[in-house]
């Protein structure tokens, strides 16, 4: 149990630092940034204490917001996907989730991809909706969502493959 807490604390800090110091400044093609800090929320161990999980997700989003001067958009988007995660888990893993036996390293790639895609899409949609805050620019919102989603998903899959063995 202690190793899980330590692992997640380290993951929290490293993902936050990588996000604000490196990934927020990529600006691929001028505006596309990946938001890989989501991995913390995606890979958080499935435990019954959902209050703690919601709170930690909020805190992570909040820190990213402080560093990027964006008000509360990352906090809002993170806390939403933290709230919706059980539904996404149920949808992508079906019975395995019901029996509390999902291990993120053991499940097959297709299911994991579905799970990540659902949550990343919801997160980015809320993020850009709040950032642009103007429904008349709906095309810009959808465009940003689509491209950032692809970028984030790609990096998340790469990171899970690269570090998958060590993070049990």
């Amino acid at each position: 149990m202690n190793s899980i807490i330590a692992l997640n604390t380290i993951r929290f800090i490293i993902l936050l630092l990588v996000q604000v110091l490196v990934l927020n400044h990529i600006n691929f093609l001028g505006y596309i940034n990946p938001y890989v800090y989501l991995l913390f929320i995606l890979l958080f161990p499935i435990i019954n204490n959902r209050m703690l999980f919601l709170f930690l997700s909020f805190l992570l989003g909040f820190f990213v917001d402080i560093f990027s001067d964006t008000g509360g958009i990352h906090a809002a988007a993170s806390v939403t996907i933290a709230f919706l995660r059980p539904a996404a888990l149920k949808f992508s893993f079906g019975a395995a989730y019901e029996h509390q036996s999902v291990k993120f390293n053991a499940i097959d790639a297709g299911q994991r991809l579905t799970y990540m895609t659902i949550l990343i899409t919801i997160h980015h949609l809320i993020l850009f909706l709040l950032e642009i805050f103007n429904l008349s620019k709906v095309i810009l919102i959808l465009k940003n969502t689509l491209f950032s989603c692809i970028f984030t998903l790609l990096l998340c899959v790469l990171v899970t493959i690269l570090f998958g063995r060590t993070s049990k």
Partner: peptide, 13 residues
Amino acid sequence: LFFFLFSIALSFT
């Protein structure tokens, strides 16, 4: 709790 945290984030936004 979700609603509370979400409202805080929204008000900051």
